[in-house]
């Protein structure tokens, strides 16, 4: 069974962290992953940087630009991760835009992911229908779970369709925004969380966008299996470097 599916079966609320690979320094990737696992993170999204990240706000844009300047590429990332499964057990997901994967060759990319022990991919600009028609068979051949996003504007009909194509979890974007644009949830969000909760979807949901601390993590996981923190973590790394990740994780999980 894929590590993601196994993790989703655990009787606990999950905290997933996104970070940009190659940031702040090109060789920080592996130590960030190891450190996050050691501190109790359940799942990690490794951001493959892109020159034109359309769905991201200033924080992740800036980290991507710096990572590319540092020399990060698909090939460099795969090399950094080649022995990762000797030390890390939690699910690892690569999150990135489609063009770098497309240039690498979708099948070659997926094959490499399987060799390394990557469990899934999140590709915000690969549409569900294109995935379904052209790439689903390849992803499945290499045992990869593709994770799709839904937003408050996504219709019930489309959510059902996405649910039917998914085989891991659904990434529930908390509000119509780019990453890091809004913090916290209002009534509009909780209504949306409840609406999705009541749909009894086949795939569990994990909420992302707008989660930055214990309060928002607790709030989000009242309605979903877990939550994802991206921009707030990248900001922490920008401000405090990579030696105090424990402080960040503890503040989210334990409110201290």
């Amino acid at each position: 069974m894929n590590r993601i599916n196994k993790k989703l079966k655990e009787d606990k609320k999950l905290l997933s962290i996104y970070f940009t690979a190659g940031y702040p320094n090109i060789n920080d990737t592996v130590s960030i992953i190891q450190d996050l696992e050691k501190n109790g993170i359940d799942m990690i999204e490794i951001g493959l940087p892109f020159s034109d990240p359309l769905a991201d706000g200033p924080t992740i844009q800036a980290s991507s630009t710096q990572a590319l300047k540092n020399g990060m590429t698909s090939e460099v990332l795969f090399n950094q991760l080649k022995d990762i499964r000797q030390s890390v057990q939690i699910p690892l997901i690569i999150m990135g835009y489609f063009n770098p994967m497309f240039q690498y060759g979708v099948e070659a990319f997926c094959k490499k992911c399987q060799e390394i022990g990557i469990d899934g991919l999140i590709i915000p600009d690969l549409p569900v229908d294109v995935y379904h028609e052209k790439y689903q068979a390849i992803f499945e051949k290499y045992g990869l779970i593709n994770v799709f996003l839904i937003t408050p504007q996504t219709s019930d009909e489309r959510i059902r369709y996405i649910d039917s194509i998914s085989n891991g979890f659904i990434y529930m974007v908390s509000s119509a925004s780019t990453t890091g644009a809004k913090v916290g949830f209002g009534e509009e969000q909780t209504k949306y969380f409840e609406r999705i909760g009541n749909m009894n979807l086949n795939n569990p949901q994990i909420i992302g966008f707008g989660i930055s601390n214990n309060q928002t993590f607790t709030q989000a996981t009242q309605y979903a299996k877990g939550a994802i923190i991206g921009s707030a973590f990248v900001k922490h790394v920008t401000n405090q470097g990579i030696n105090t990740l424990d402080k960040f994780v503890n503040s989210v999980l334990n409110n201290d």
Partner: peptide
């Protein structure tokens, strides 16, 4: 340019071998 994705469409696109837009 090579085939790639920019601003929501697949087209010919100037990019690096790694798929970063130049």
């Amino acid at each position: 340019g090579k085939e790639g994705i920019i601003h929501g469409c697949k087209t010919l696109l100037m990019q690096t071998n790694d798929g970063q837009i130049t």
